[in-house]
Design a protein around this nucleic acid. Structure first.
Length: 330
DNA sequence: TGTTATGATTTTGG
DNA sequence: CCAAAATCATAACA
């Protein structure tokens, strides 16, 4: 709380309280009568200086007395004027918060990752978009994906609750300070403009804390992302039956091994893999077959006889309807 | 432990 | 945007 006291102390030096001298018609009348006031002011100043030497109780009583002094409003307005001239002109220039590029970047990233954006629906859409952007193909419905989304949701919840806490603390503190200043503005010159400035300072402080939160959230998302990508990179061979189905299709369509979207979907269903995995497989197969036909000759023959056998079986089964004596080989 | 096979990702070209 | 080609990373194997 050192900061707080320092900030509050720093406030004292600025501004004039306009309503203090406007509101009191006495101050005008008193200022007009010369001679007497000069002595009064000297008197007041002397008493103010003397306060520091007195005990707390005495000082308190004296302060109250000074507050009620008939010359107080006049002195007050003079102080305001002086402060206005000396300090405000210097400070008034470098105002207006420049939008921090750092925090803008963090904001954008959190938005892009679906952390700070709209809840649930939009969030998962953004996550899917992020996943799609990370890899060429969206891997639909995989275990890792839902895992990733669950973790992201967790991060989002933590982020939002922390953010809320900070915002609440900020507004509480701001209110506290504002009340304090308003209270003090009765005894020392504090302009509303200055209270505003004070609030801005507090908000800046809190937003720097928020930036830390955003930064660590970003880091967490990045780590999660990289782990997610690593997990996706982990290769698991397709089962034997799946590769068989794929190879069968490939070698029986060797002249044009480009399955249509529907064919891909069917193959995917048969093999228990995704459509993009089917596409990957055919992409890899085409290029690798083309690169070294010799190496795949054996395989090609194998599947050629396989399909031939299948065809034979089919025709056999067809003929079985006519003559049920035909035996099938295993 | 080195090599190959293979699924996934990235880069490139139309 | 799609497919080829290159490349990466790991499973499977010798």
């Amino acid at each position: 709380m050192d900061d707080q006291t320092r900030m509050l102390a720093g406030m004292g030096g600025l501004g004039g309280l306009s309503q203090a001298d406007v509101g009191d018609p006495d101050s005008v009348r008193k200022q007009q009568s010369l001679g007497q006031p000069q002595q009064d002011i000297g008197d007041i100043l002397q008493q103010i200086m003397a306060i520091t030497d007195e005990s707390l109780d005495e000082a308190q009583a004296r302060k109250h007395a000074l507050n009620c002094h008939r010359m107080k409003p006049a002195l007050f307005s003079v102080l305001c004027e002086i402060k206005e001239k000396t300090v405000l002109s210097i400070r008034g220039v470098q105002e207006e918060d420049p939008p921090d590029p750092q925090i803008m970047r963090l904001d954008n990233m959190l938005l892009a990752e679906g952390v700070s954006g709209p809840e649930k629906g939009g969030g998962s859409a953004a996550a899917a978009a992020a996943a799609a952007a990370a890899g060429g193909s969206p891997n639909d419905g995989s275990i890792e994906h839902s895992d990733y989304r669950a973790k992201l949701t967790q991060i989002r919840q933590i982020y939002h609750s922390e953010l809320e806490k900070y915002e609440q603390a900020c507004s509480e503190f701001t209110n506290h300070v504002m009340n304090l200043l308003r209270e003090q503005s009765r005894t020392r010159p504090i302009s509303p403009k200055e209270i505003e400035r004070m609030v801005a300072i507090i908000h800046r402080k809190f937003s720097s804390i928020q930036m830390q939160l955003k930064q660590s959230t970003c880091e967490a998302v990045m780590i999660l992302r990289s782990r997610f990508l690593d997990a996706r990179r982990k290769r698991r061979n397709f089962n034997k039956q799946a590769t068989e189905v794929l190879n069968e299709y490939f070698y029986s369509h060797l002249s044009n091994p480009y399955p249509s979207e529907e064919a891909k979907e069917e193959l995917a269903k048969k093999c228990g893999i995704t459509v993009s995995q089917v596409s990957n497989w055919f992409g890899n197969k085409r290029i690798r077959y083309k690169k070294n036909i010799g190496k795949f000759q054996e395989e090609a023959n194998l599947y050629a006889v396989k399909t031939a056998v299948d065809a034979a079986n089919v025709s056999a089964q067809a003929s079985q309807a006519n003559s049920p004596a035909t035996p099938n080989s295993g």
